[in-house]
Amino acid sequence: MIEFVRGYIDYVCPEYIVMEVNGVGYQIFVPNPFSFRPSRDTIMTVYTYHYVREDVIALYGFRTREERTLFAKLLQVSGIGPKGGLAILATGDVRRLVQAIEEENEAFLCKFPGVGKKTARQMILDLKGKLQHVMPDAMPNLFAEWEHIDRSTALDEAIEALKALGYAEREIRKITPILKQETLSTDQYIKRALQLLLK
């Protein structure tokens, strides 16, 4: 098990980041890649989940151990794979997610890509009462905000990231006019889009 990776952020794209550690680049899939900024000036620590299946070996990364624990618990739910787990965590609003599970709010859970009524019910059955230790009180907001000079580029990157998370183009098209009214960084566009998608 790889507990964490500590190094420089070398590359960011809609699906993953690349961290350089002693000359080796690690491809790490994260909930919101654009919350990271490529930099040779800052050493970062990303807590990892080493996912191994017959046809897949991948690293998934998180800002905190608590967030990684929640991801691992989501993977234990029938019907949720790594991509679905990342999409659920991409909002950064863990308190709302835990609240929905505790209150058995299936309608809210079904708004995540790939989550239908059956999977939402399974999430509630498997996780209700078991997530107190991953509440956001133990998860400080560590996202580093950074500005893109080109608003259109930032919005385009955000749209690609939403697609990578599994949101359909028709869902994205509905909220794009709203996003175009704002000037935000890529990370901020993604967070704003997720807020709109989960309303």
Rank of each mutant, 00 (worst) to 15 (best):
Arg95Ile: 01
Glu169Asp: 15
Gly129His: 07
Leu155Val: 11
Lys180Gln: 14
Arg170Lys: 15
Arg121Tyr: 01
Tyr26Ile: 05
Phe62Val: 12
Ala168Tyr: 09
Ala154Lys: 03
Cys13Arg: 09
Arg170His: 14
Thr69Ile: 09
Ser78Met: 03
Glu104Trp: 00
Glu103Trp: 01
Arg63Ala: 13
Tyr49Phe: 15
Pro82Asn: 06
Leu97His: 02
Lys83Pro: 06
Glu182Ala: 14
Val21His: 09
Met123Trp: 04
Asn32Cys: 13
Val18Ser: 04
Ile9Asn: 02
Leu196Trp: 05
Ile17Thr: 02
Glu3Met: 04
Ala100Arg: 01
His133Lys: 14
Leu142Val: 14
Leu162His: 04
Ala158Val: 08
Ser35Tyr: 07
Asp10His: 13
Leu196Ile: 12
Ser152Gln: 15
Glu15Gln: 14
Ile178Gln: 14
Val24Ala: 07
Pro31Gly: 01
Gly129Gln: 09
Phe71Gln: 02
Ala161Trp: 00
Phe108Lys: 00
Leu197His: 04
Arg37His: 13
Leu97Val: 07
Ala138His: 11
Met1Thr: 07
Glu104Ser: 11
Gln132Glu: 15
Leu165Cys: 11
Leu196Thr: 06
Tyr26Glu: 03
Ile28Gln: 03
Ile57Val: 15
Phe36Ile: 05
Val24Lys: 09
Pro82Glu: 02
Thr153Ser: 11
Lys128His: 09
Ile57Cys: 10
Ala154Met: 08
Arg68Val: 05
Ile124Trp: 00
Val77Gln: 02
Ala164Pro: 13
Tyr26Pro: 03
Ala161Tyr: 02
Thr91Ala: 06
Ile28Asp: 05
Ala100Pro: 01
Leu70Gly: 02
Gly25Phe: 07
Phe143Glu: 13
Gln195Ile: 07
Ala161Pro: 06
Arg192Gly: 03
Ala193His: 02
Leu125Gln: 02
Leu184Ile: 08
Tyr16Met: 11
Leu127Gly: 03
Phe112Tyr: 13
Met44Gly: 09
Gln181Lys: 14
Met139His: 05
Asn141Met: 09
Pro31Tyr: 02
Ile175Gly: 08
Leu194Ala: 02
Ala107Leu: 07
Lys117Trp: 04
Ser152Glu: 15
Ala72Asn: 12
Glu54Leu: 12
Asn32Pro: 06
Gly7Trp: 00
Val98Gln: 00
Gly25Ser: 12
Glu102Gly: 01
Ser185Pro: 09
Ala144Phe: 13
Ile101Leu: 00
Lys128Leu: 10
Arg173His: 12
Val56Tyr: 00
